Simulated assay, not measured.
Amino acid sequence: MSVLVVIPARYPSTRYPGKPLVELRGATGVAKSLIRRSWEAAGAAEGVDRVVIATDDDRIRDHAEAFGAEVVMTADKHRNGTERVAEAVAKLGGAPEIVVNLQGDAPLTPAWFVEKLVQGLRADKNARMATPVLRSTGKMRADLLADRAAGRVGGTTAVFGHDHQALYFSKEVIPFAAAPFAPDAPTPVFHHVGVYAYRPDALAAYATWPEGVLERLEGLEQLRFLEHGQRILCVEVEARGRQFWELNNPEDVPRIERMLAEMGVA
């Protein structure tokens, strides 16, 4: 049994060109690139056998190899990270038990998110892929709503059934709740964490399917699985006092740097 983590990274971005190379300062004031912090986060998870960065950009490759990462060059035609991960896995060969896609814009992903995700997929033999969800506090929900009100594409939310099978994912804040929530109070809104675990055959099949309508409208790659009738397991994870946020816009840089400082991450 083996677990392969692939971090897809591309230089062009509509909202934030060059994002993987953006430097973030931690608690000690030391600056590390976004892609390096994501790579370090992947390596901190127990049970991970190999971590690879998949990119189509020479600048990202050179930078990643300089800090010791293994890099696989992929085509520049991919529409999302899952397609890039699928090509990387095919190039690497072998037969990993589980492939984890750790998004390169999620440097605050705790190691136990990845660990619990792998455990969840191993336990549910019917799920083709799995992804973590984090119950939002009143403050996190308010931050998500503030981003949407300002016209920024912030975090993604997820809704799922009693069996934890995903019903839908959206960049809107769902489900709607009219009642206000105290900052520390739990809410019915689950923040989707940008990590995916796939069975290799499901990942290979994904790359052969056309882009779905919902996937294109929302800009969420995992919706292609739902549009093709595939079961996605939502694995609820706990923050354990850690803050979590993805880097989606330039405005997120000071927010993430503040979180790194508050958590004491170098």
Results as ranks from 00 to 15, higher is better:
R135K: 10
L34D: 01
E218N: 00
L4S: 03
R37Y: 03
R240I: 00
V51C: 01
H78T: 05
P12M: 08
E83D: 14
F67G: 13
A266D: 13
L214F: 13
M1A: 15
V253R: 10
M1G: 14
T55C: 05
R199K: 13
R199W: 01
W112I: 12
V30R: 11
R84E: 15
V85F: 08
G29M: 04
E172R: 11
V22Y: 03
E97A: 12
G18E: 10
T208I: 06
Y11R: 13
Q243C: 00
A88P: 12
E238I: 02
L134I: 00
D201P: 00
E236Q: 13
E97M: 01
H192L: 13
A130Y: 04
L4C: 06
P180Q: 06
E70L: 09
L260D: 07
L167A: 14
P20Y: 02
F181P: 07
L102Y: 07
I53Q: 05
A42I: 11
V48G: 01
R25G: 13
F169R: 11
L134S: 09
V114R: 03
T131K: 05
A149N: 07
T28D: 15
T28W: 05
V5H: 05
L203V: 11
A182M: 05
T157L: 00
N249A: 08
H78V: 06
E46S: 15
G264R: 03
T208P: 03
D105E: 11
G138K: 00
F160I: 10
L217G: 10
A207M: 00
